[in-house]
Amino acid sequence: MAHLVYFNGRGRGEIVRMMLAASEIPFTESFLTERKQFENLLEDGALSFKQVPLLRIDDMELVQTGAIVRYVARKGGLYSADDKMAAMIDMYYDASRDFQYIFLTLKFLKTEEQVIADAKAAGDSKYFPALEKRLKENGTGFLVGNSLTLADVGFLEVLLMCIEYGGEHFFDDYVEVQKYYQRLISIPSMANFLKSPFRKRKNDDQYIAEVKLVLNRT
């Protein structure tokens, strides 16, 4: 069984949780709430680059979110052995991370109102038209191939936040994106995850305080 070490919040850990769920890999998790916990991980050599999330899986201690989710995707059959398809999955997944970064600034650097405005502007100018075009071209209901991949899970995380913060009509002007979103949240593994305790709450003051305390940031 895999074990995730992160904060009791979303941040960069949520995509790891979503990928584990999508790949149907059972996992447990523990939360960092005190500086000493983080220091212990450093002393034990568990954090190669002095950062979390940390995933313990298959006798490995993995950090770097991209490496973690790609490993999980391969184990769960949500990647591709074909180099061209893998490159396409990487391209759309990395784009989803660029989009998602807007939400990572919430309450750390920007207010909710600023984040919503930035997300809407980025969505309308770049991401939603690109998704609309790709979904029409591929014609399978997924971004790459004919089944769920890492690319889809990456964008699902962002679309969920768009709806949660910006309202249910956030991407009403994009018919294919609407259908895509509804399709993804209806996939059993994703539907079950969204109803489970593994789905973390929105950023709140407690989460922000714990992150700053653990990482020794003001």
Rank of each mutant, 00 (worst) to 15 (best):
I57A: 04
K50W: 06
P53F: 02
R17A: 07
N138C: 08
Y101E: 15
G167Q: 12
L41F: 06
S30H: 10
M85H: 10
E43A: 12
S147A: 12
K84F: 13
S48L: 11
V72A: 04
R217I: 01
R70L: 05
V214E: 01
K36F: 06
A151W: 02
A209Y: 01
D44C: 11
T28G: 13
F155A: 07
T111S: 15
R74Y: 05
R217N: 00
I89S: 09
T65K: 05
G167Y: 12
Y79N: 04
Y165N: 14
G141A: 10
F38A: 04
Q178D: 09
T65Y: 03
M60I: 06
D82M: 14
M85L: 14
F27H: 06
A130H: 06
Y92P: 11
E137V: 09
T105R: 14
Q178M: 12
L215A: 00
I25H: 07
R134P: 02
R134C: 06
E39W: 05
N40P: 06
G141M: 08
G141E: 02
F7Y: 04
A191M: 06
K212E: 00
V16S: 01
D124T: 10
R12G: 02
I185P: 03
M1Q: 06
E210Q: 02
F38P: 00
Q114S: 15
E29Q: 13
Y181A: 08
K107M: 15
K50L: 07
I102K: 14
G166Q: 14
R74C: 08
G13F: 03
L156T: 05
F49R: 11
R35M: 10
L194A: 01
L32Y: 04
K212C: 00
K133I: 04
G154P: 07
P53Y: 03
E210D: 02
L54R: 01
L104I: 15
L159T: 08
G139R: 12
F38S: 02
I15A: 03
M85G: 08
E176R: 15
R35S: 12
T140G: 11
A81S: 11
G166A: 14
K75F: 03
E34K: 13
G45M: 12
F155M: 12
P197R: 04
D83C: 13
K133W: 05
